[in-house]
Simulated assay, not measured.
Amino acid sequence: MTQPLFILALPRSYTSLIAGMLGQHPQTFGFPELNLFTVDRLMEMWQDGKHDAGFNKFQRHGILRAVAEIYAGEQSSNTVEMANHWLAARQNRSGFEVFRELSEALDPLMAIDKSPAHVISSVYLERIYSAYPDAFYLHLTRHPTNQGNSVMKVQDGGYALSVNSIDYTDNEAIIDPQIAWHDINLNIMELLQKVPPRQKMHVRGEDVMADPLGSLGRICRWLGLRDDIEALEDMLHPEQSPFACVGPINALFGNDPNFLRDPVFQPHLPKQPPLRAPLPWRMDGACLKAEVQKMALEFGYHH
């Protein structure tokens, strides 16, 4: 059984794009966002609002689309309905058991999971590692200012609010995504301390954007996948993924909506602001906190 790859990253860190690229390799299958390790039992995904961040129906779209694609070969209203029945028959199983069944159906292709919901809690990360101690783990990061700025543009910072990323200063509560950037990356790093060196890699999303063939080739060699030019060329077309477009009416999402609108990859060199510059979402002229700057430097971002 081929071991899966788990991409561990905050949302708005090029996750959809890079997972889509890796999923186009001829030896892999890139899942949409399954969120399967956020639940003990599958039925919890159908209990709205049970979770701290509120498990909403959009978070089920990825698993519905994946089941439709894998077992029916297409995603339509009818095959999503079939997927609903398939999942209902497994409602008492753990998220891990369902993930394993999907992965086995794809064997010998390597399954790639990149659900940003998994990194919110160390409990979810622990579930993944307990189930897959031999898997590959890719820690993907983005510059804290750019990631934070991107998060703040989605639902007026709704994500930052949902993960309690709030700065309490001078009797004022300010939504500030840098707190989540620091704490969630810390969760990931703590998990990765247990993972053998051979099974983990840190990649800056910016490096993949600027040098896709070099970065993707390095990831392929680490995973033991082909790194010939044909395989690398395939990976430059994430838009060819069956999950790189809006789905049928009963499972529209399963991926970042911005990616679904425009999944085409354009190589570019992302601008990285100085770590000491004032933050665009703060009206008080605040900069990145010292501990955030320190972590960003460890990841290879520069002052």
Rank of each mutant, 00 (worst) to 15 (best):
E298H: 11
Y71C: 12
S13R: 10
V151Y: 00
E69H: 15
Y129Q: 01
L22G: 02
G148K: 10
M189G: 09
Q240Y: 15
Q293Y: 03
F253T: 05
I63C: 01
V246T: 13
N92T: 11
F299E: 04
Q3P: 03
V39W: 00
L64R: 03
N258E: 11
R127D: 01
M283W: 14
M1R: 15
S130K: 15
A277K: 05
S165W: 11
L225C: 01
V80I: 14
A180S: 12
L161S: 10
P32R: 03
Y168L: 12
K114E: 04
D170I: 13
Y168P: 09
F96G: 06
A19S: 15
L297V: 08
T38Q: 00
T141K: 07
A117G: 13
I219Y: 00
F299G: 03
S121C: 03
L236D: 05
V67K: 00
S241Y: 08
V119P: 05
A9D: 07
G49Q: 08
N187F: 09
S150N: 05
L216Y: 05
R221Q: 15
L191E: 04
A244M: 08
R12T: 01
F58I: 14
S122I: 06
Q59T: 01
L225A: 05
S13L: 11
R276M: 13
R65M: 00
Y124F: 15
Y71T: 14
D48C: 06
F253M: 11
D170H: 15
S115E: 06
P274S: 14
E44M: 07
E74R: 15
F259H: 09
A251E: 00
R90H: 15
R65L: 07
L288N: 06
E44W: 05
A83H: 03
P238F: 02
W281C: 02
A89W: 13
F58N: 12
A180H: 07
E172G: 08
I120L: 09
W86Q: 04
R198S: 14
L225M: 04
L260T: 07
R100N: 14
Q266W: 08
P280N: 03
M295I: 07
G254P: 04
G285R: 01
L269I: 14
E206Y: 00
Y14A: 13
P32D: 04
H237K: 15
F6Y: 12
F299Q: 11
G214E: 02
L22H: 04
Q240P: 01
Y132E: 11
I7K: 05
L191V: 05
G95Q: 14
T28A: 13
H25W: 09
V246D: 09
R127I: 10
L223Y: 02
N92Y: 08
R41S: 03
M209H: 12
L191H: 09
